[in-house]
Amino acid sequence: MLIYGVAVLAGCYILGQLTGEILGRVLHIDANVGGVGFAMLFLILISHWMQERKLFTTDMEQGALFWSKMYIPVIVAMSAIQNVKGALSGGLVAILAGVIPTAAAFLMIPLLAKLFHAHPETTTP
């Protein structure tokens, strides 16, 4: 049943959000602390656990995969409801915050590659 997969996903979502809220209360900050990240962690662990026991059918997987494929469209819809007019004054911040960190990350690639001895000849099929 497709809905079982969706329900597993929904369960992990609620559990993750709860964890984030509880963590926020414990830390005395008025925010959801990493709820989405926790939910993803739960989903990876639970779906792995269920797959090992053959409890997670392809049908159930389809139910969860549908929502994962909806994420770019949802992000597009999310962009369409932002207060862009109010944020335009911050356009320069956006460009700088996009370009500078990316350049820094690119510079790190050869360093890490050297650290982990990546060579062209180690290419695996």
Binding site: Y13, A80, I81
Partner: peptide
Amino acid sequence: KGIADIPELSGFSLMGGAMFRDFTIVATAM
């Protein structure tokens, strides 16, 4: 609220809201 302030397109505020956004992102962990 961007495009969602136009009544005919107010559904965007649900589709692009926090619930669907977080739900679909969690789903990518699949």
